[in-house]
Design a protein around this nucleic acid. Structure first.
Lengths: 337, 337
DNA sequence: CTGTTAGCGCCTTCAA
DNA sequence: TTGAAGGCGCTAACAG
């Protein structure tokens, strides 16, 4: 394993100069720098990350905290974040935390992150206030994606507007009884997207003079299976529902399956709209509010790098969502007597 | 930042004893150990990873090399691997490498991994022979998932058998002209799953006396869009095809979309079968060969840990695939004159 | 069972 | 612009 002193010897300079030259620091003559770079690459020298971290106090690594990597939103954000970070010379350490809807997960332990990362990216992980506090106590810069506590740097959607516009699309088609399926409440905090989407949904209904009722809202798993179960529950209780706003595309696709289970056709009997712009939404012609998750990851990475560098990035970066109309929404069926 | 000496002072022992006690090494009296553990947790002490890596030469970190994290197979394997590794006390560093079908990607540079990880998990990344060699030259244990070069520890499917059985299912329904859509050849090596699946497909056709022809095979993107385009190309060239074997569920779902584009119904006009057991396959009633990707990740993690510990795990762990019949395959339509 | 003593390989003042 | 030297915080021999 070639070390810095071998390079120094080969280039005829001190190890300090090698270190400076290789890191692009100033105060190195261009001739010296060229010679060092040359010898370093010839010898295949790469600085030991542990040694330089120990000496400098910086790890050039960030921690990616997320509940899952195998769901659409998370996978795409992580993909974007990892590539964004790598482009900026940082490595990404992956930390997953089980979040089962409605169940407590293991607490986020800041200890593991201590002295291990220069920054933290929290991707769609609903953290309790004290978890946020313990993370902040590390003194490590943090950026939140998807949702984040007030005052923290966050990349997110305008979830309220997204919920409102999705609902308005349904109302505009003539639907008057619009159901909503979303996540379990105790899995979320007051800064969670599902709550804001639901608020937008209620606001839109109220503005249109349509029924606003708890009986029109079912909370369950935030995934395909959850959407499937929730829509069945919704229809069992409110068979008069002619349209459903699902808080995510995965739930919406579950809803399509669940409606199929009940023998209801989409959109002839019931319209369905989701949120995400999932790649496979087209399989069922899903109408949805599209968001750019990959870019959210990229942007979050650069905000975090800014923070790590001591900058003051904007507190909140809001991504737009765009209505994509496909086949899962249509005018409601004629009212039955 | 509390250090090991503070704990040592508080517990009234030397730093060496603290180190031993905290790492669960033998030769520490239980009384001493308890006292040390107590003080350490009271002070919130966590050893600096860089310092201990530097001193010990071990990083307790492994590198996850993968082309994507946002595709089904990869996301699930990574999820399993990360959790498996964490359970064994290891961290996972994520490294993605762009693989665009048919295009060269940036070469895997072993330099970045050097002294940074104790082991490497290669997830579905087709590496050139010299890339494998340069990785092996690191002297770091490596485990491959999905496919791997001969002689290396690999977790995978019996792709040949999977392709054969998928094709046999179609033949068993009475199909005689069975097309195949898969990945672009130059993106794959001789140890790649797509090639083996195709070989199985051809073997099954030959055994049944059905037509084996290059005109029945289309290679394109290994994703939804690729499947969609490929099936259209296939049908344009061979309109007599009554069944399609897609090398992945994502391609199969794309095929369903593409057949829809052409006005062909599934399965009335054309049957479709995939490989994976993708969560959303049910949306289109996709018949498929199911594999357990999550567990492949978990198992790969433990094989790698075994290797890191100096063990000699089995060279190849083969996962079973199981035929799941849903609605996308059926008997062929009556032959036209 | 426990303490002492060298480093691990690099970065970073400080002086030159 | 460059070099010398002292750590960064921990682990691992070796004594005791």
């Amino acid at each position: 394993m070639t070390g810095i002193d071998e390079v120094a010897r080969a280039a005829g300079v001190s190890t300090a100069t090698v270190s400076r030259a290789l890191r692009g620091l100033p105060n190195v003559s261009s001739g010296t720098r060229a010679r060092v770079l040359d010898e370093a690459s010839r010898l295949g020298y790469v600085a030991s990350p542990s040694a330089s971290s120990l000496a400098s106090g910086r790890t050039r690594t960030i921690g990616l905290l997320t509940p899952w990597v195998n769901r659409w939103f998370f996978a795409n954000v992580i993909d974007g974040a990892e590539r964004g970070l790598r482009a900026l010379g940082y490595d990404a350490l992956l930390y997953t935390f089980d979040v089962r809807d409605g169940h407590p997960r293991r607490r986020v332990d800041p200890g593991v992150l201590r002295r291990r990362v220069d920054g933290i990216l929290v991707v769609g992980l609903p953290l309790a206030d004290d978890e946020v506090a313990s993370l902040l106590a590390l003194g490590t810069p943090i950026v939140f994606v998807g949702s984040g506590p007030a005052g923290q740097v966050t990349v997110r959607l305008d979830d309220d507007a997204t919920g409102r516009r999705a609902t308005e699309h349904l109302l505009g088609l003539g639907h008057r009884v619009v159901g909503h399926i979303t996540g379990v409440p105790d899995a979320f905090l007051d800064w969670s997207p599902p709550l804001a989407r639901e608020a937008g949904y209620r606001r839109a209904l109220a503005a249109a003079g349509a029924e606003v009722s708890d009986s029109l809202v079912v909370r369950g798993g935030f995934d395909v299976a959850g959407g499937r179960a929730s829509v069945r529950e919704l229809l069992a209780c409110r068979p008069d529902v002619s349209a459903v706003f699902a808080a995510s595309d995965e739930m919406a696709m579950g809803a399509v399956l669940g409606l199929g289970d009940l023998g209801r056709r989409v959109p002839d009997d019931v319209s369905v709209i989701g949120v995400d712009g999932h790649d496979l939404g087209e399989l069922v012609g899903l109408t949805t509010m599209v968001q750019d998750t990959y870019q959210q990851g990229v942007d979050a990475a650069s905000l975090l790098m800014d923070l790590v560098a001591g900058g003051s990035p904007p507190r909140v970066v809001t991504f737009p969502t765009e209505l994509l109309v496909r086949r899962s929404t249509a005018v409601p069926p004629p009212r039955r007597a």
